[in-house]
């Protein structure tokens, strides 16, 4: 199972539509970093609207992806985190402090542009 990564101008768009298991998540991490490298993208939006469970492992993978992409010069914004997911993350004590978030894909793109302009 691989998660498709779409390219739009300088941005990469990912919508995660499947139940994330550990292998898929790790595979996704590798694919995304590879794609940033090959495309030279400066911004990434990962949309989690259809994800209804994020446990500590997935959260760590996502947090790592953001930091790793940052190192490679691409800003990442997470969008569409569901209320139930947000509540469980808080309960788990995972705050994803340094990860930019936005309500939906549109807001995410606006946020990316702002972050990149600064």
């Amino acid at each position: 199972m691989r998660i498709p990564i779409l390219k739009l101008h300088n941005y990469l768009l990912i919508s995660i539509q499947t139940e994330l298991d550990d292998k898929t998540a790790i595979q996704f991490q590798e694919d995304l970093l590879e794609k940033i490298h090959s495309s030279g993208a400066t911004g990434v939006v990962i949309d989690l609207t259809s994800v209804d469970i994020v446990d500590s492992f997935i959260a760590k993978v996502l947090g790592d992806v953001v930091t790793m992409s940052d190192l490679m010069g691409a800003k990442v914004v997470l969008t569409g985190i569901q209320p139930a997911v947000a509540v469980t993350l808080i309960d788990l004590g995972i705050h994803l402090q340094d990860v930019p978030t936005a309500l939906d894909l549109e807001q995410g793109l606006i946020k990316l542009r702002q972050e990149l302009e600064e």
């Binding site: 569409g80 569901q82 209320p83 993350l89 808080i90 705050h95 978030t101 309500l103």
Partner: peptide
């Protein structure tokens, strides 16, 4: 504080 952090996570 927890509510505020959850609000930030969902992008607001």
């Amino acid at each position: 504080i927890q509510a505020a952090e959850a609000v930030r996570l969902i992008g607001s």
